[in-house]
Amino acid sequence: MTGVIPKIRLRGLAKAFGEKRVLDGVDLDIRAGHGMVILGGSGSGKSVTIKCILGLITPDAGTIEVDGRDILAMPRREREELNDRIGMLFQNGALFDSLPVWENVCFKLLAQKRITRAKARDKAAEVLAQVGLAASVGDLSPAELSGGMQKRVGLARAIAAQPDIIFFDEPTTGLDPIMGAVIDGLIVDVVKRLGATAVSITHDMASARRIGDDAAMLHKGRIVWTGPASVLGESGNAMVDQFARGDREGPIQMELRR
């Protein structure tokens, strides 16, 4: 990656909540147009890392660069313009249950006035088709959808505005293995079609190998390994391999109280 400006570059990212230091100097480069999977146990700081990049949490220290520009030092308007180019699939979908599916899907386009309400339904149907859902789903309420359909609608919402960076928070959590594979396939397809940079956090190793080009392991608030996602399980790094195989014994010790 030497000489090429990464799409996203994190340096010395730190964040503490009270006494608990969640991020302790995260350094990470994410290549443009590639899929990065961030692995790590529960509470290792994966979600906090993503939320710092999205501007939902302000880090205590460190820098976050997108296309070579420090976004923490950006004026508010520029930061908002950057957010316009970012999509996010939340772990539980985070669909707005007061709005029908079509309005959820086109929410960003409507908010930015890039589309009229009259045309939004057709646009929603088009995007829903890209994630394998019928146009009739657009008239349903999010509460009427199954978990897998909610993920697909969440994915449709994340890609509707054609972002060039997309974040996926545990995209297959709570789904059966087949639906998980379907969602992964959709993610790979839409990311490739948009030419976007994808950043995913997951515990699901099969999913990590399917959607990731690169992988990074976050442990105790630091990145302890980066490498190709294809070698997960046989990376040569004891922590990564233990995590990928789900071994109880190894350098990662779960903090269990007896």
Binding site: L54, N83, I86, A94, S98, F107
Partner: peptide, 20 residues
């Protein structure tokens, strides 16, 4: 209740990511 539910189900964070 409505805004609280939106908070704990990440819907408020989702608004921010949707340029709102």
């Amino acid at each position: 209740a409505e805004i609280g539910t939106m908070r704990v189900t990440d819907q408020i964070d989702a608004l921010t990511t949707l340029s709102t």
